[in-house]
Measured scan of single mutants.
Amino acid sequence: DESNKPILLPNESQSFERSVQLLDQIPSYDTHKIAVLYVGEGQSNSELAILSNEHGSYRYTEFLTGLGRLIELKDCQPDKVYLGGLDVCGEDGQFTYCWHDDIMQAVFHIATLMPTKDVDKHRCDKKRHLGNDFVSIVYNDSGEDFKLGTIKGQFNFVHVIVTPLDYECNLVSLQCRKDMEGLVDTSVAKIVSDRNLPFVARQMALHANMASQVHHSRSNPTDIYPSKWIARLRHIKRLRQRICEEAAYSNPSLPLVHPPSHSKAPAQTPAEPTPGYEVGQRKRLISSVEDFTE
C-alpha cells in the first residue's frame, strides 16, 4: 500500500519547517483550565467582593489541597506544564494547583491565590483569567444561592456549585447557560463527603469543560472538536499529503500518493430520524474511523 510507505522529508523547505513548528504547539495530551472561586458570607451577589477574597475557610483550604498538586509557578516550564496563561514571573501569584493523568493536564485558576492589587480596583487582572475559563468551581460559603452570571465573562458556560453542609458533607450541583443544557445535566445534585469532594468536583468540572469545548467549536462548523492527539494525527497526515504533492510536482515521474478510497458502495440502511441538538453535539466527541485508517 503506497499510502503507508515511509517518505523522504525535504531537506530545505520553509513550509515544512513551519508545519513542524506548528505541530510542536499541539500538545500530545488534552488540556483544561478551571476557575475556582470562594464566596464568603454576604458575597453571593457581589463580583468585586468575591474576586477580592485572599483566603477562605478551613474546609475550603482542605478542598484545594485535594484538587491537585501545589506547584510554584516560577519553577514551571510552560512547554511541559500546562498553566492556561498564568504568568511565571509573579504577575498572577506564586502558587497554583494542577492535576494530570496519562492523557490530560488541568490547571486551576484560583482567585484566592492570585494577588489582590490596590491599583486594580475592579480586579481585572484576576478576571482576565477567571472570566475566560469555560467552567468555574464555586465554593459557596455564603449561606445564600449563587446565580450564574454573578461573575461577568463571555465564556462562563458552567458552574460547579459546592455548598458546604453539616457533618462534613457538601451539596454539589451544576448550573449552565441555556445554550449548554443539551450537553450538561443540571437536574441531579449530589451529597458528597469532604473527603471525596475534590475528586467529584474535579471530575464534574473536567466533563463540563470538555462539553464546553465542543459547544464552543460550533463557531467553526468545519472543524469538529477532536482530542489533542487526534489533532496531531490529522496535522501529520495533512503534512504527509502536502509533501507527496510537492514531490510529485517537482518530479512528475513519481506517483502521487493519495489516501486509500473505498470503491465499494456502502450498504443501504433504513433512514433514521434526524438526531436532535443534544445527540449531534455528543457525537462530535467521537472520532471518525477515517482518522485511523487513511
Results as ranks from 00 to 15, higher is better:
residue 6 P to E: 11
residue 8 L to P: 15
residue 10 P to F: 09
residue 11 N to P: 10
residue 13 S to F: 08
residue 14 Q to K: 10
residue 15 S to Y: 14
residue 16 F to N: 07
residue 17 E to P: 03
residue 18 R to G: 10
residue 19 S to F: 14
residue 19 S to D: 15
residue 22 L to M: 13
residue 22 L to K: 15
residue 23 L to G: 07
residue 23 L to C: 08
residue 25 Q to F: 05
residue 27 P to S: 05
residue 28 S to T: 13
residue 29 Y to N: 06
residue 31 T to K: 13
residue 36 V to C: 02
residue 38 Y to M: 00
residue 38 Y to P: 00
residue 40 G to E: 01
residue 40 G to T: 02
residue 41 E to H: 06
residue 41 E to K: 05
residue 41 E to M: 07
residue 42 G to N: 09
residue 43 Q to N: 02
residue 43 Q to Y: 02
residue 44 S to E: 07
residue 45 N to Q: 09
residue 45 N to W: 02
residue 47 E to V: 01
residue 58 Y to T: 07
residue 59 R to A: 00
residue 59 R to D: 00
residue 59 R to M: 00
residue 61 T to G: 11
residue 62 E to A: 07
residue 63 F to H: 00
residue 69 R to P: 04
residue 71 I to G: 13
residue 74 K to Y: 06
residue 74 K to L: 03
residue 77 Q to A: 13
residue 80 K to D: 15
residue 83 L to N: 14
residue 83 L to M: 07
residue 86 L to W: 14
residue 86 L to S: 14
residue 87 D to K: 14
residue 89 C to R: 05
residue 90 G to I: 04
residue 95 F to M: 05
residue 95 F to A: 05
residue 95 F to G: 05
residue 97 Y to Q: 04
residue 97 Y to P: 03
residue 98 C to R: 08
residue 101 D to F: 00
residue 101 D to W: 00
residue 103 I to T: 15
residue 104 M to T: 14
residue 105 Q to R: 12
residue 109 H to M: 04
residue 110 I to V: 13
residue 111 A to K: 03
residue 115 P to D: 04
residue 117 K to R: 11
residue 120 D to P: 07
residue 120 D to M: 05
residue 121 K to T: 12
residue 122 H to R: 08
residue 124 C to R: 15
residue 134 F to N: 03
residue 135 V to Q: 00
residue 137 I to N: 00
residue 137 I to L: 03
residue 139 Y to F: 03
residue 139 Y to E: 00
residue 140 N to D: 02
residue 141 D to A: 02
residue 144 E to L: 05
residue 145 D to Q: 08
residue 148 L to Y: 14
residue 148 L to S: 15
residue 151 I to W: 05
residue 151 I to V: 13
residue 152 K to D: 13
residue 153 G to V: 03
residue 154 Q to H: 12
residue 155 F to P: 12
residue 157 F to V: 09
residue 160 V to F: 00
residue 161 I to G: 01
residue 161 I to P: 00
residue 163 T to V: 06
residue 168 E to D: 07
residue 168 E to H: 11
residue 169 C to K: 02
residue 170 N to D: 02
residue 171 L to G: 02
residue 171 L to T: 03
residue 171 L to C: 03
residue 174 L to W: 02
residue 184 V to Q: 03
residue 187 S to A: 08
residue 188 V to D: 09
residue 189 A to M: 14
residue 189 A to E: 11
residue 191 I to L: 07
residue 191 I to D: 01
residue 192 V to F: 02
residue 194 D to N: 04
residue 194 D to T: 01
residue 195 R to E: 11
residue 198 P to S: 11
residue 198 P to L: 01
residue 204 M to G: 01
residue 206 L to A: 01
residue 208 A to W: 02
residue 210 M to I: 10
residue 211 A to D: 00
residue 215 H to Y: 14
residue 216 H to R: 05
residue 216 H to S: 06
residue 217 S to K: 05
residue 223 D to H: 06
residue 225 Y to C: 12
residue 229 W to M: 07
residue 230 I to C: 14
residue 230 I to E: 12
residue 232 R to Q: 13
residue 233 L to K: 10
residue 234 R to S: 11
residue 240 R to I: 05
residue 242 R to S: 15
residue 242 R to W: 15
residue 242 R to Y: 13
residue 246 E to Y: 05
residue 246 E to W: 07
residue 252 P to Y: 10
residue 256 L to S: 15
residue 256 L to T: 14
residue 258 H to I: 09
residue 258 H to C: 13
residue 263 S to H: 10
residue 267 A to E: 12
residue 267 A to Q: 10
residue 271 A to L: 12
residue 276 G to R: 07
residue 276 G to T: 13
residue 277 Y to E: 15
residue 281 Q to I: 08
residue 283 K to N: 13
residue 283 K to C: 10
residue 285 L to W: 07
residue 288 S to G: 12
residue 288 S to W: 05
residue 288 S to A: 14
residue 291 D to Y: 13
